[in-house]
Design a protein around this nucleic acid. Structure first.
Length: 206
DNA sequence: TCTAAGATGGGT
DNA sequence: CCCATCTTAGAA
């Protein structure tokens, strides 16, 4: 069985750091927990992408401070959840200090706790069909836009570090689906756990 | 007001 | 390849 005391909830200071690319890398191998509707689920993060509001055309907050992006301009340590294509709820981790609009998109994970509940939510059986992709991951974990701005150091959504974590091999790639961002689409800001079967899209070329 | 496009996913 | 589905941002 899984011993919850193995995992240490990441403190707010983890999210307040200024290097969003480093944070995206650091999040690989961490475990995303949700306790929503009385259902505990957890999944190990295997794929992330960094978005930087100040110099990254792919970021929603780039040269834009609107109702939607205001979440990213807030202080780090909260969720930024938005609806994509009218269907998918994409979960991001807001980082950095107030007025610095950075976030990390959690793109894929490996189910650990609450797999049966994820199967019910997803109406799929195979473990790789539960949390491999930013939209489906949110569905499996019960995350929707109602959790936009929710704290990541609270009792509904949080991220834990394995106290016994050994060194991980990380692959780097360009981000998915941001071709509109011109040369920023080529930034090496996507991180994956090497050899994981749970990443959403296989490695392309930088 | 109006409209195009989008950090996707599933099916053909 | 196609399409579901709807909010957002920016234009008019």
């Amino acid at each position: 069985m899984f011993d919850l005391t193995t995992y240490e909830k990441l403190p707010k200071s983890f999210y307040l750091r200024s290097d969003v690319v480093q944070i995206a890398k650091d999040l690989i191998g961490k475990v995303l927990f949700t306790n929503i509707g009385g259902i505990l689920t957890a999944a190990k993060i295997v794929e992330t992408e960094a978005y930087c509001g100040r110099n990254d055309r792919a970021c929603h907050a780039f040269e834009r401070r609107t109702k939607r992006t205001e979440t990213m301009y807030g202080e780090g340590g909260v969720a930024y959840v938005y609806l994509c294509y009218g269907i998918h709820h994409l979960f991001n981790v807001v980082t950095n200090m107030h007025d610095h609009a950075d976030a990390v998109l959690i793109r894929a994970a490996e189910p650990i706790i609450g797999i049966e509940q994820m199967q019910l939510r997803r109406k799929k059986q195979k473990p790789t069909q539960l949390t491999s992709g930013p939209g489906v991951l949110s569905q499996a974990l019960g995350i929707s836009t109602t959790y936009n701005e929710a704290s990541l150091v609270g009792e509904e959504i949080w991220i834990g570090a394995d106290r016994n974590q050994i060194r991980l091999e990380i692959e780097i790639d360009r981000r998915v689906g941001v071709d509109y961002a011109g040369e920023d689409a080529l930034l090496p800001w996507r991180f994956m756990l090497r050899e994981s079967e749970y990443v959403s899209v296989k490695k392309r070329n930088l």
